[in-house]
Design a binder for these strands. Structure first.
Lengths: 248, 248
DNA sequence: CGCAATATTGACCACTCTCAATGAGGGTGG
DNA sequence: CCACCCTCATTGAGAGTGGTCAATATTGCG
């Protein structure tokens, strides 16, 4: 029922708990990169504080954001296929991350079936998330996409004990637009429309959701591909055992 | 460079070779299901002949296709996250598949690091594919999507020794439209336009591509989100070690 | 041979992109 | 502390892609 806009997960400290390793967090500043395309896959990273965007730089200098990541979430899986990263990961604000060298991870997977299972489950969740994202971006209207995006954010924050209805967007409108495949102006307009309709109040990067239910109905409503009455669409559960998520 | 529309892969018989198991193919008829949402994840399946669509049934009876799969490709990974399938897999024509029980797979992963690595790589490839698909569906025009779809098909068939320029579409226009997030009419229209422009010739489900290059340029051209001149967009390599692919 | 499903084509219209202008914040230097 | 600038965000007007509705082939099947 909950829309899927962002990564999906595994218990936040799951990896740390399972591996018994908890490296000290590395601080990075706004705009700093954890990895870039072409970098060998040395490690996976767990965000400890702040937030990160994972994106694919394109040939023409443009970029495509494939995920936003918050504390407890794992990034770096984009390098799994080829052992070298295909995406870049940049901090959206001052951020700290823990590094898990892949060599250690491989050893752990070898020695502890539980780690392996957890890791597989985590990958499966990520696949699920991407499939849901595909639905959102491929079949939903601008309103549906933004609603889905916000609900996903809300859900993830709630899972971490933050307020699900009041939060700060660490990414710019441009990032959101890029992520959702919309124009910046459209994002802005939809925010305004939502506010006018009393769904939420938004001021710059501060969002306060006022009607979660109605927002949810928006996600499962408009695809512009189905019929005059926009029948509801299930997006598939994003409910996970753990409280955290993972990413690209 | 090659657009990514469909699953990505692992050596076709990679799983069989690695596991040393090669079960006999099970035949299924058009419309028969290998699994449905809610089914426990008993096995993964490799398509041996024919073709399969993997899709998510929605609340309202509609469906969302998340992949088409051809001989050599693996399906069933949608159940990895929760140990039960979230998608359905239906044969598009008379099809045979080999079954790989997950229990065996787990044992193999435990006993043979190579299997585990291969499996991880394969999952990574699938993630990459989905990310590329996200790009295609989220940022490309109708022409770009169909071009990407056809090129992906072309590439996969070529990798298997079939003609990359002449093939039969085992899925209906409705399936294609569903998969690409378009209306059936749009798919039909774009096919016609492509034919008018000499890019390909199409008659019902038979397609003959006449200008692969120009088709490729279409994919990296129109996003409708970038600027007046539609700068080219890299979609990321879909080149895999093996000749086969995997799926949902 | 007809019925049903699939595919194509046309007319119309809505959503959202593009272009352009204005407003609000945040930073730097005077 | 204020002026200035630059980025980010908002808002409006016009245009275009693609969805919807509807009618007409074409195919496949009983």
């Amino acid at each position: 029922m909950r829309p899927a806009c962002l990564p999906c997960g595994l218990a936040p400290e799951g990896l740390e708990r399972l591996t018994g390793v908890s490296p000290r967090p590395l601080p990075v500043g706004h705009g700093d990169h954890a990895f870039r395309p072409g970098d060998p896959l040395r490690a996976l990273y767990v965000v400890k504080s702040g937030s990160v965007k994972v994106y694919k730089p394109m040939a023409d200098g443009d970029e495509q954001i494939v995920g936003f990541h918050f504390p407890g979430e794992l990034i770096g899986l984009d390098g799994l296929a080829t052992n070298s990263h295909t995406c870049a990961a940049a901090a959206l604000e001052t951020t700290t991350m823990c590094e898990f060298p892949v060599i250690q991870l491989h050893e752990m997977c070898h020695n502890y079936p539980l780690v392996r299972h957890e890791f597989n489950r985590l990958l499966g969740n990520h696949l699920t998330h991407l499939r849901n994202m595909l639905l959102l971006v491929g079949r939903k209207s601008a309103e549906g996409r933004l609603a889905g995006f916000l609900l996903d954010l809300s859900g993830r924050l709630k899972a971490r004990g933050y307020s699900p209805c009041q939060f700060y967007l660490s990414m710019s409108r441009l990032d959101i637009a890029n992520y959702l495949g919309l124009a910046v102006e459209t994002v802005s307009r939809v925010f305004s429309r939502f506010q006018d309709e009393g769904l939420l109040s938004v001021q710059l990067r501060h969002v306060a959701i006022q009607d979660l239910d109605r927002l949810g109905r928006l996600v499962n409503a408009g695809s512009g591909l189905v019929g005059p009455f926009r029948p509801p669409r299930q997006l598939g559960a994003m409910t996970f055992a753990g409280a955290a998520t993972m990413s690209s």
